[in-house]
Design a protein around this nucleic acid. Structure first.
Lengths: 226, 226
DNA sequence: CTTGACTTTCTTACAGCATAAGATGACACT
DNA sequence: AGTGTCATCTTATGCTGTAAGAAAGTCAAG
């Protein structure tokens, strides 16, 4: 589509049927992720991905049963890369804090994939390892198993949700929802909102995340049995 | 609610150009929401929506500039309906609790729309009123304005994220991620996860939401200045 | 060295999608 | 009666995912 795309595309070298391009599912996923990062979700079509790899679109169906599976693979990919390695023993509070912070950072490296992430469960070996380890820490600390699981799930939802909200991926993005807009909506009806918008108060994403994360973990602590 | 929503499609009565069908943006949105509730996001096409309303697809472009705007309208619709009316003075804790609980319930009435909701900001009059009121409560309680805004945003993200995760809208849904699956993945590698899965521990969505909400609000309280 | 199965790729084709452009008729004013 | 504006339909275009099958390479067995 763009100049950049033409630059990146492999020289297609007019291959006939039978001539192998030598690909793997992993390469397909990598290329797809790159494409999504560059052109957004809408930029990922079987045709464009094929072009990226110097291959016809239908060839991809040999590595992936259909496009939905490709998207699932993308999410899996992102999660695996974003899941931090937990280095041994720490108290559960700092472990969860580290986990959440690293996960957020990792997810924000591929913002366009996030809308897919919330509705698709990603159970990769990496995440399972992580969850198991964290469950160990939490149960040791006195949380019942079910509650510990709830905590981890909530934390994951929390991080993914925040990351998704931060990366406002509005496809047809042409919004103008600033202070002026709010003020125009109804003059004196929203004094606090207008003040906040003009101040720029409460707009720092990282700060909001840090604050809310602290609050959540503090709340978990407060609700700990014993 | 409307005729279309009840599933009774209008008889298309072969209308010529110029013959009015007498519609409104609101009717279009209502029909679209009904269609999405019934057939899912993929079931909503301009053609199907037109058929639902007894009208050609292109006619819809008179009420909506393009499909993306239609989707935005859908989100707006759902949020407006889901935003609870806040009845006057209460302490901020219970106000936020009520707000979050009602919002979750409202959102879950249209699960298929939720994947759209996280990435699309919905600033409707109803939500603005609500936010302004809650901001009032929070600043009165001693929270700085920026922090109060952060709290509300985080709470919204929290609720939307939870609701979206609850309504697992995997389009090509054919997962089997139960205890057996986890066990099969790696025999004794995930003892806690397997135990949780077989127990069914930590699987109640409503309970998880209630618990995490309590934790978050408790954390907010703990981080309150003064 | 030939044969035949299997794998990977390409080719062609189709139905469905959003939507651009413009024709058509009906109503509200003048 | 004439004119303009609005709501609708008609037609057409270039996308999309993917089904079906042909072609060419690789490889194992006879």
């Amino acid at each position: 589509m763009t100049v950049a795309q033409r630059g990146r595309k492999r020289e297609a070298a007019r291959r006939g049927p039978g001539k192998r391009a030598g690909m793997s599912r992993q390469q397909v996923l990598d290329a797809a992720l790159g494409l999504v990062d560059r052109d957004g979700l809408k930029g990922l079509t079987m045709r464009s991905l094929g072009e990226e790899l110097g291959v016809e679109a239908m060839t991809l169906y040999h590595y992936v049963p259909n496009k939905d599976a490709l998207l699932d693979g993308l999410v899996e990919q992102v999660f695996t890369a974003a899941t931090p390695a937990l280095d041994g023993a720490a108290d559960w509070r700092t472990a969860l804090h580290t986990y959440a912070t690293a996960l957020r950072a990792g997810l924000l490296r591929h913002p366009a994939v996030l809308p897919l992430a919330i509705s698709r469960p990603a159970a990769t070996p990496a995440t399972l390892d992580e969850v198991e380890a964290l469950l160990g820490l939490l149960t040791e600390a006195g949380f019942p198993l079910g509650r510990a699981l709830n905590m981890l799930n909530s934390l994951a939802v929390f991080v993914i949700g925040h990351a998704t909200a931060e990366a406002r991926i509005v496809v047809g993005a042409d919004e103008a929802g600033g202070a002026d807009w709010i003020a125009a909506q109804a003059g004196g009806r929203y004094p606090l909102l207008v003040r906040a918008a003009t101040d720029g108060a409460g707009t720092d994403d990282a700060e909001r995340f840090a604050f809310a994360l602290d609050a959540l973990l503090l709340g978990f602590e407060a609700l700990r049995p014993e």
